[in-house]
């Protein structure tokens, strides 16, 4: 739903961001052939051609590195106050300026970035694992389990995302781990439904029937056949969940329900700066731009991954 939380399940929102579709004759029908390359090599090649995704990957790695090394790179601590330098604009001594307590924006941006990126990654991975496992079980075994999963997800997906998160955040504290847990416990649901859907449809396909006929056990079917075929969709959705998690965490923190000070996150830095934005615009520009850049790169990356991995998408660039 609106408000930056965008309740559309991650895969659903950006699936329309497909950048191309088929032209009438396919490679096969025109007598062209890829010479015996594995799926993985083909996927890697396709991904490499998506320059924007590659560039985004580079930027993200750089960001991750910078924030991970915040302790080394940052000129000041994130709570370090310099009361003689309050509300300075960007300058030599403080690269990106200071806030009311004289804290260095650049350092806070780095430490805050660490929190925001950790949250994004942590949520995506845990929600990804949880959602995949539960969705796979529901889709594969069906029956009671599937029913329960569907009803539970129905319940939580009927309540606006932010509402659920705000209510949940009352129960927990405001630490990074708390927020990761809260977000993960909610964001696994859209992914679970997607995986469930995939398993449900894959289950009916003939190659699964064939596998059963030669006596493959359930485990084997799941791990050798169903999972690899869903992997592309899963990876894409997990990537997009990173974007959603970062945006949601910053929104929550901005509203005061997320990461609590003094731990900086880009979200609560924005909240801090909001009141002073008319006289100290830099307190608002930089954290917001940081979020925008990160999420944009993640979305480009997700798009590139989708082009490379999602078999349901057809693409020929004319």
């Amino acid at each position: 739903m609106p408000d930056g939380t965008i309740d559309h399940p991650p895969g659903q929102v950006l699936s329309p961001v497909a950048t191309s579709t088929q032209a009438p004759p396919t490679f096969e029908s025109l007598g062209l052939e890829e010479h015996g390359l594995s799926q993985r090599t083909l996927a890697w090649r396709r991904f490499r051609r998506h320059r924007l995704a590659m560039a985004s990957l580079a930027v993200l790695l750089l960001l991750a590195l910078a924030t991970a090394l915040a302790g080394v790179i940052a000129p000041y601590g994130f709570s370090e106050q310099h009361l003689e330098d309050t509300l300075q604009g960007p300058g030599a001594k403080h690269l990106l300026g200071t806030d009311t307590l004289g804290r260095d924006e650049f350092s806070r941006l780095l430490y805050g970035g660490r929190v925001s990126l950790l949250v994004g990654l942590g949520v995506a991975v845990s929600a990804g694992v949880l959602g995949t496992l539960i969705g796979a079980a529901a889709g594969f075994y069906g029956g009671r389990l599937d029913n329960i999963v569907m009803r539970v997800t129905d319940l939580f997906l009927s309540i606006p995302l932010l509402v659920v998160l705000i209510i949940a955040s009352r129960v927990t504290g405001g630490g990074t781990l708390d927020i990761v847990i809260v977000l993960a416990l909610v964001l696994w649901m859209p992914l679970a439904r997607i995986v469930r859907g995939m398993f449900l449809s894959l289950k009916e396909k003939e190659f699964i029937e064939a596998a059963r006929m030669i006596g493959a056990s359930n485990w084997r079917i799941i791990f050798r056949h169903l999972v690899p075929n869903s992997l592309g969709v899963i990876v894409v959705n997990v990537t997009l969940t990173v974007a959603l998690a970062i945006l949601t965490e910053s929104l929550l923190s901005f509203l005061g329900f997320g990461i609590q000070p003094p731990t900086p996150s880009w979200g609560n830095m924005l909240e801090d700066g909001r009141g002073l934005m008319t006289i100290a615009g830099w307190l608002v520009w930089f954290p917001g731009a940081a979020i925008l850049l990160t999420v944009l790169c993640v979305n480009f990356l997700g798009d590139g991954l989708r082009d490379a991995l999602d078999p349901t998408q057809r693409r020929v660039r004319a």
Binding site: A23, P25, F27, L30, R317
Partner: peptide, 11 residues
């Protein structure tokens, strides 16, 4: 003919 990623195909 068709222009494709791989080049021009003389269908």
């Amino acid at each position: 003919v068709f222009r494709t990623e791989a080049g021009i195909v003389h269908a």
